[in-house]
Design a protein around this nucleic acid. Structure first.
Lengths: 243, 243
DNA sequence: CACGGCACTGAACGTGTGTTTAGTCTATTG
DNA sequence: CAATAGACTAAACACACGTTCAGTGCCGTG
């Protein structure tokens, strides 16, 4: 209720909320107990319920705060002339609990995560349009869709950070991508992975041929048009005649 | 569904295990109760403990079974001449609980997930090498690293499927990617997103200049070399001193 | 000063959960 | 046929968790 922004913000409620963001971000909502949060904040468990009504209420407060903070940070970056919201996000990314909190939310499928995802996708799309005009990105008809995919991939990669880091021989705790990681991403985003546009062409042909593609390609296609160009080719071709 | 050791496999323990795979895959390990699994399998909760010792033991059994089943499926595909393991995986993907189970494991960070991830990355790398020889994929020095990234992106996209589907206006329950999804992925993997190779070049220069890059690029770079070509430019270029 | 509201605490309550235990039923074996 | 082992169940146990409750001290207000 009494959630003033700056000076008033160090109230017990605020400290509880901040502790909760840290704990939720580390262990997730379910595995974090009210008692843990209370202890970390230096209060009794009862006070949490007194201020937030329930554990779910506390989460709602955390969601609201984190989302607002993110929006503020991004707006601030835009206003200050830095037209790159990712830089702003990156600024917090380092060790800030908010990033962990949002990643956990994304992992657990909370409402805040959906809000964040949609907002970021939208923003990425706008940013990409701008970058196209400046000649830094390839023009495309599907810029918005590509932004969605790229945001999903990016967050997905962060969610699986542990495994990626292991594959690249980095310590699991490190948040920073390794040079090998960066190089691989750069290469994919610069040149793609396919040798030519045969798969894209095949797909276009499929689409323009009037045949509704989802039935033929459905789930499996998701796997096939991926790095296994081989099967993508075979599938795209076979799908026309067979079935 | 039916298995190699078909007759012996329909024991109560096996049915419990299968029910557990379904339940764990839908709701996750923590939110699934032993009683639910028992009820779904048609037995009493006590029997689960009798056979598997504990809920964790049941999970271990599920992990082992799913991983073995995946390996079997992949080997079978290889032996039968289909050199594409993703096709095999795709075959199960549709509605099979195993895929959900593994995705949940990946989400929760179980050991089985790590095994699966590493195995798939390895296999993807081999497959990509083969595809390069056949002229379907671009040659590259970083094929293995790229495979890791692509596998991570793919799984990450599946983990965030809900949000991606929402962005593409599909029902959340559908596992199949929409045509818009496929098209966007194809475009990225065919052409990349950057207009030219300036970012890649900048990065290469950075690396060959002897300067250890991690300090300069660290966490934030993860965001910057991504779709926001703009900031990637600014970052990579400023370091080398560009406009 | 008396008083009422407020932040806050400590202990208890109720519930859901994994697990244990005692026991029944079935079937295989000597 | 008797006995033993294992599959299986019903009930209870133990514990952790979110939540409730009855207070206690503190501060501003009449």
């Amino acid at each position: 209720m009494s959630s003033a922004r700056s000076i008033d913000d160090r109230t017990a409620a605020a400290r509880i909320r901040d502790s909760a963001i840290v704990s939720f971000g580390q262990a997730g909502f379910d595995k974090t107990t009210v008692r843990e949060i209370a202890a970390a904040a230096g209060f009794s468990p009862g006070l949490i319920l007194h201020h937030f009504g329930s554990k779910a209420g506390l989460r709602a407060a955390c969601d609201e705060h984190v989302i607002a903070e993110f929006a503020r940070s991004r707006n601030e970056a835009v206003d200050s002339g830095t037209t790159d919201p990712f830089a702003a996000m990156a600024g917090i990314e380092r060790e800030a609990p908010m990033m962990r909190y949002l990643l956990q939310s994304l992992r657990e499928g909370s409402e805040a995560a959906a809000t964040l995802f949609d907002g970021l996708a939208e923003e990425s799309a706008r940013l990409m349009e701008h970058s196209v005009e400046e000649g830094q990105l390839r023009p495309s008809d599907n810029l918005h869709d590509m932004a969605v995919i790229l945001v999903a991939w990016q967050f997905g990669g962060l969610l699986l950070q542990e495994h990626v880091a292991r594959a690249f021989g980095a310590e699991p705790l490190t948040a920073a991508p390794t040079p090998r990681h960066i190089r691989a991403v750069l290469e994919i985003l610069t040149h793609g992975v396919f040798a030519d546009s045969r798969y894209e062409d095949a797909w276009n042909e499929l689409e323009t041929s009037g045949e509704p593609p989802p039935a033929a390609i459905r789930g499996p296609a998701k796997w096939r048009e991926r790095e296994s160009g081989q099967s993508a080719a075979r599938k795209g071709a076979d799908a026309v005649k067979e079935r």
